[in-house]
Amino acid sequence: KELVSALYDYQEKSPREVTMKKGDILTLLNSTNKDWWKVEVNGRQGFVPAAYVKKL
Rank of each mutant, 00 (worst) to 15 (best):
G43I: 02
D9M: 03
D24I: 04
K38H: 13
T19C: 07
A51N: 12
R16I: 13
K55N: 08
Q45I: 15
L56P: 07
K34M: 10
S31R: 09
F47L: 09
T19N: 08
A6H: 01
T27L: 14
L56Q: 09
Y8K: 12
M20Y: 02
V53C: 15
D24A: 07
Q45M: 11
E17V: 05
A50D: 02
A51W: 10
R44H: 08
R44E: 05
E17Q: 12
P49A: 02
M20T: 03
T27W: 13
S14H: 12
Y52N: 06
T32N: 12
V18C: 10
Q11C: 13
W37I: 05
F47E: 04
S5F: 15
G46W: 03
E40C: 12
D9A: 07
A51R: 13
A51L: 11
D24H: 04
T32P: 04
V18M: 10
W37K: 01
Y8D: 08
V53D: 01
L3E: 08
V18G: 01
L26P: 01
K1S: 12
Y52Q: 05
R44I: 09
V48W: 01
K21Q: 10
L7D: 03
A6V: 10
T32F: 10
A6F: 01
L56K: 06
Y10S: 00
L56Y: 11
Y10K: 01
R16L: 14
E12Y: 05
L28N: 01
L7K: 09
K21V: 10
M20S: 01
S31V: 08
G43R: 04
G43Y: 04
W36A: 02
G46P: 01
K34H: 11
R16E: 13
L28W: 01
Q45E: 13
P15T: 10
W37E: 01
N30G: 07
K21C: 10
V18H: 03
V18A: 05
D35H: 15
V4N: 02
K55D: 06
K38M: 15
P49T: 01
Y52P: 02
K55A: 10
Y10W: 11
W37P: 01
L26D: 00
K21Y: 10
D35T: 14
K13M: 12
K22V: 09
E12M: 13
K38V: 14
L28C: 07
A6W: 01
E17D: 05
